[in-house]
Write a protein that binds this DNA or RNA. Structure first.
Lengths: 204, 204
DNA sequence: CATCTTATCCCTTAAAAACAGGATATTCAG
DNA sequence: CTGAATATCCTGTTTTTAAGGGATAAGATG
């Protein structure tokens, strides 16, 4: 029995590329594609593939959210994340939301096939490249509380402690404490490096 | 006579996608592909295509630099930028470096063919989507002097005016002046928003 | 040559952030 | 229940920025 594969990616060229890579594989059955999250969900109401190859960056909804939604509604469908970004935060979130694998868009046909075959059996696939990133940056993983993230974003917006305090209905002293904790968590020397590091990590 | 097309993109799937989109076009001759800037330059030493479809983000060298190099050495070759990012700064730099067009990776086959045909005639192609972005953000284009950029990067690195002054062998007062000018140019309220805006614009 | 840009330097005052240290209340998991 | 994490608030001092102002000198450009 062939493995039914469905693709969600907002880049037409990538869809064509994958279709081209898989078209001669007898073990793969191409069931269709979608260029956004909504049409993907519509498709799933009528037909369930075995595997969805899912881009993490899409216009209407991130693949990270879509993955969660799909796995909640259709737990039997396996999801493989698809992205150009070999970034710890994305991969981690995708796997947390139930993905069974993560493939970079510069993957070869062999890697893609390996991923599909392994995931179809219910196993997990992460390429060497991806799993290395996951391990390497794992310890430098910074977890912010809701309040800290809120404060961080307002700092990035150029607000002072006083202004942030007013906005969040808390004392400027409290804002200052959050600020201190942010500096400590990011190991940043001052606001400038804090915002820079957070930006690089795509937290803001 | 068919238009000779060459592709540079570090994503195998995108190369396959474009190949698949173009394979049935009689007016297109596929001359090959490269997954990095170096092998692209090697190829050009032996054979010159009419058009190069060039990804702007590659591991060894950015498409922006590669475009410049190619146009300097082989002015007769037309370059079409290829990217997922519909961002003013990238498009502008690519066009400044001699590109004849810019196509997003979510382009349809029709758009891609339209771009290739137009550019092959020596004209310029920008999709509606792309040219809109170019016009819209054109006035918010910020030009920094060498010194300002240097100071900006050191600020982002967490250094104080005194430290930057020591590093650059200038007075802290001078650093402060550059800082003031940076805040004015970016219309930023303080360091935090300065670094945030510059990060978003991918200047740092 | 006149003008503009860039880079350099200085002063002052007020505001903001960094650093240190401590304190209380709540929530949540073991 | 107990401790850890989170969120809240405080008092200080020192350092750094922000803002306002003004000034000089070199180099490019029309």
């Amino acid at each position: 029995m062939a493995t039914k594969v469905f693709i969600v990616d907002d880049h037409y060229m990538v869809i064509e590329g994958i279709r081209s890579l898989l078209q001669n594989e007898k073990t793969i059955e191409w069931t269709g594609h979608a260029t956004n999250a909504d049409s993907c969900l519509s498709f799933l109401q009528h037909q369930l593939p075995d595997i969805i190859l899912m881009d993490i960056s899409m216009p209407d909804k991130s693949g990270i959210d879509l993955c969660k939604e799909v796995k909640e509604k259709y737990p039997s469908v396996f999801v493989i994340g698809l992205s150009t970004f070999n970034q710890q935060s994305f991969i981690q979130k995708m796997m947390d939301n139930g993905a069974s694998g993560y493939v970079l868009k510069n993957a070869t046909q062999e890697e893609l096939m390996e991923a599909i075959e392994l995931v179809a059996k219910g196993k997990t696939y992460l390429s060497d490249e991806v799993s290395k990133v996951l391990r390497k940056q794992d310890d430098s993983n910074i977890v912010l509380t809701r309040r800290e993230k809120e404060v961080l974003e307002l700092i990035a917006g150029g607000m002072t402690n006083n202004e942030i305090g007013e906005k969040l209905f808390i004392s400027p002293s409290t804002v200052d404490t959050h600020r201190k904790n942010l500096l400590a968590k990011f190991e940043a020397k001052n606001t400038a490096s804090l915002i820079h590091i957070a930006s690089q990590m795509q937290i803001i």
